[in-house]
Amino acid sequence: MELNNIKPAEGAKHAKRRVGRGIGSGLGKTAGRGHKGQKSRSGGYHKVGFEGGQMPMHRRLPKRGFKSHLLKFNAEITLTALEALGLAEVNLVALKQAGAVGELAKVVKVINTGAITKAVKLSGIGATAGAKAAIEAAGGAVA
């Protein structure tokens, strides 16, 4: 192999479409832009959502609602799911390893859904008032 014999891979290079170069090319005269009008002219186009001067949809409809971008860092776990884990001590790392909460979760809270019979010690995890009462009734603790 010599430097003067190196070629690009087959099919890697192809000729660019040259518009406005005569009728034989198939893209002469109007250069594939049709006839007249705003879209046929250079620099002639409109912004996204433009409706010809009519009040656009995104301005006709009312603004409504709000969704916090921080919600993806919050997670919750039920008493039933906590029972199913079968761990004596539960923290954020243990919940992530078990797949009970998402990998992005930073704040986890136990909610009072279902029942719990095993004693579970929570560390670094919140709990609702009802869930805390149920955990303590089962002999567990919320730190």
Rank of each mutant, 00 (worst) to 15 (best):
L95T: 02
L61P: 07
M1F: 10
G65I: 04
I6S: 09
F50T: 12
E83Q: 03
E10Y: 11
E136S: 07
V90W: 05
A98C: 13
K118Q: 12
A131S: 09
H58W: 14
A31N: 14
T128Q: 00
A15V: 08
L87A: 14
S68Y: 09
F66M: 15
N5S: 11
A143R: 05
G22S: 01
H46G: 03
I23Q: 13
T128I: 08
V93G: 01
G44E: 05
A15D: 01
K29C: 06
G86W: 03
L82M: 10
Y45G: 11
A131M: 00
H14W: 11
R21D: 08
Q54K: 15
K121T: 11
F50R: 12
G28D: 00
E51H: 07
F50L: 04
L95I: 12
G28L: 12
G43M: 09
V142P: 04
V19P: 07
L71Y: 13
N4E: 15
H69T: 14
G99F: 03
A81W: 09
A98P: 01
E10I: 13
H14F: 11
S68R: 00
A12N: 04
V142W: 05
A94P: 07
A15R: 04
L82H: 09
G99R: 05
K72P: 03
K106M: 10
G52A: 12
H69C: 08
